[in-house]
Computed example of a mutant assay.
Amino acid sequence: MPVTTELSARALLLDMDGTLVNSDAVVERCWRRWAARQGLDGDAAMRVVHGRQGHLSMAILLPDRPMEQNIEENRLMLAEETADTDGVVPVPGAPAFLASLAGLPHALVTSADEGLARVRMGAAALPLPPVLVTAESVGASKPDPEGFLKGAAALGFAPADCLAFEDSEAGIAAALAAGMQVVGIGPRAAAHAPTVQVDSLERVEVTAGADGTLTVRVG
């Protein structure tokens, strides 16, 4: 029988791509085209791009290129990704999971800019959390913890009282560096040492106690 893990928190911080929204088809299309234009191996590029802001992925893949060029190309990449919603769907269990959080303290913490976040959540027919921490909100991208720290502050809780949901190496590292426990969602998360990993949000249940404590059962 599956083992159930029970975690406690006061607030939840949620990544978007790969955690709530399956946008892999768009990411693959856009980033493989970009990699081909640079003469890079597409598979190698895909191992880097998840979870980070695009200009930092570009900097890792092309370390000798000026950052100004990466920032400009990322602007174009964001426009391309925002215009392409073909295949953007909720991850299994995301609609019911977000519905269960209505009225509870939770925030979106994503490396996407606000426009892309709104488009992808809309394409997946998912409600936006009450607090958004997007690329414009931070000076440093995941794996830096700034986004998660800002999400906790916006909700009014200490980082240690927040539980993060993530799928990528960069995102899991960012949440752990912020001092939070992390629920890893999906197979991509398993290799990156989250506090607990689960194949699907269908296996996550959140209940609120009378004192506001959130009990998260994973398993």
Rank of each mutant, 00 (worst) to 15 (best):
P105S: 09
V133A: 01
S57F: 12
D113T: 08
L149A: 08
L176T: 13
I172Y: 02
L12Q: 08
G219F: 12
H106K: 00
R33V: 12
A190Q: 09
I71E: 10
A117T: 08
E72H: 13
L13T: 07
S23D: 08
A191L: 13
L201Y: 11
V218E: 00
A99Q: 11
T82N: 13
V198I: 12
E169P: 02
F97P: 12
P194C: 08
E72R: 14
G151H: 06
G156M: 00
T110E: 04
E72L: 11
S8H: 15
D144V: 05
L155D: 07
W31L: 01
P187A: 15
M77V: 07
G39V: 08
A178H: 11
M16Q: 14
V26Q: 01
S137I: 11
R10P: 00
W31Y: 14
A152D: 11
L116T: 10
Q69W: 05
R37P: 05
A170W: 10
G39L: 06
E136L: 09
T110Q: 03
I172M: 06
I71C: 05
G184C: 03
A164N: 03
D43C: 01
L104V: 06
R65L: 03
V27G: 01
G18A: 04
A153G: 10
A193I: 01
G103D: 08
A158K: 04
V216F: 00
L163E: 05
A154W: 02
P129K: 15
E166H: 03
A210I: 12
A79K: 11
S100I: 09
V49S: 12
A193H: 14
S200W: 06
E72Q: 12
L98D: 10
E202L: 04
I60L: 15
R75M: 10
T19D: 04
V27K: 08
T195H: 04
L155Q: 04
K142Q: 01
P63C: 04
G39E: 12
A152K: 06
Q38R: 15
V88I: 13
G156W: 00
A191M: 07
G171A: 08
L176F: 00
P63I: 05
R120P: 09
H50L: 13
G115T: 14
V48F: 14
R37S: 15
M180K: 02
G186Q: 03
V218A: 03
T110P: 03
D113K: 07
D211Y: 06
A189N: 00
G18M: 00
A190S: 04
T213Q: 15
A83V: 14
S141G: 12
I60E: 14
R188W: 11
N70C: 13
Q181L: 09
P129D: 05
G51I: 03
M77N: 10
L40K: 07
P95L: 05
V109S: 07
A44W: 00
K150V: 13
